[in-house]
């Protein structure tokens, strides 16, 4: 057992657990944040993606000992139902979620991607950015539309459009 501290969704947190426990397990079991999902456990599918710093990373590949003093944001930190992010709103409006099990990871990846750009992304740019997230239901087309629509709304809100 080890005492490990990190910032989670803007709050300082301390956990006592084996340092070799994956970040995903710590989030789901110790922190009660079950938005991040395990689907492959091997970093192939992106369902467990969280932001570490600004980067979307598969939390099933990260041991909790590696995130000492890091800043982590999960899908819950991006927005909950009463304070949703533009990305989340766009996913609902465009029908970009179906069974929804991959959705939190995709929201995280989309949020990370949109943070870095100052324009409405092209389809090719989105395909490159989201290439690590598997979805079995939607066919991805509505995910692409939702990300473009979120970008438009983001710029409209910030007055950059």
């Amino acid at each position: 057992m080890k005492k490990i501290q990190f910032h989670l969704n803007g709050k300082k947190e301390t956990v006592h657990c084996p340092p070799a426990k994956t970040l995903l397990e710590v989030l789901r079991e110790d922190m009660g944040l079950t938005g991040s999902k395990e689907c492959c456990g091997k970093g192939e599918c992106g369902s467990c993606s969280v932001l570490i710093g600004d980067e979307a990373i598969c939390s099933c590949l990260i041991l909790v000992g590696q995130v000492e003093n890091e800043s982590i944001v999960t899908v819950e930190g991006i927005g909950l139902q009463d304070n949703m992010d533009v990305v989340q709103e766009a996913f609902i409006k465009e029908g970009a979620t179906q069974c929804g099990y991959c959705t939190p990871g995709i929201i995280v990846a989309a949020k990370s991607f949109l943070k870095d750009i100052e324009h409405v992304p092209t389809v090719e740019e989105i395909k490159t950015a989201l290439g690590g997230n598997l979805c079995r239901c939607t066919g991805y087309q509505k995910i692409i539309t939702a990300i473009q629509s979120a970008a438009r709304n983001k710029f409209a809100l910030s007055g950059e459009a």
């Binding site: 944040l33 079950t34 938005g35 991040s36 999902k37 999960t74 899908v75 819950e76 991006i78 927005g79 909950l80 139902q81 949703m84 989340q88 996913f91 609902i92 409006k93 029908g95 979620t97 179906q98 929804g100 099990y101 959705t103 939190p104 929201i107």
Partner: peptide, 16 residues
């Protein structure tokens, strides 16, 4: 019509 379960899915709040 947008899905009724959309909000809880995009926020990760839905408990599977």
């Amino acid at each position: 019509i947008a899905r009724i379960d959309g909000p809880e899915k995009v926020t990760g709040e839905l408990k599977y």
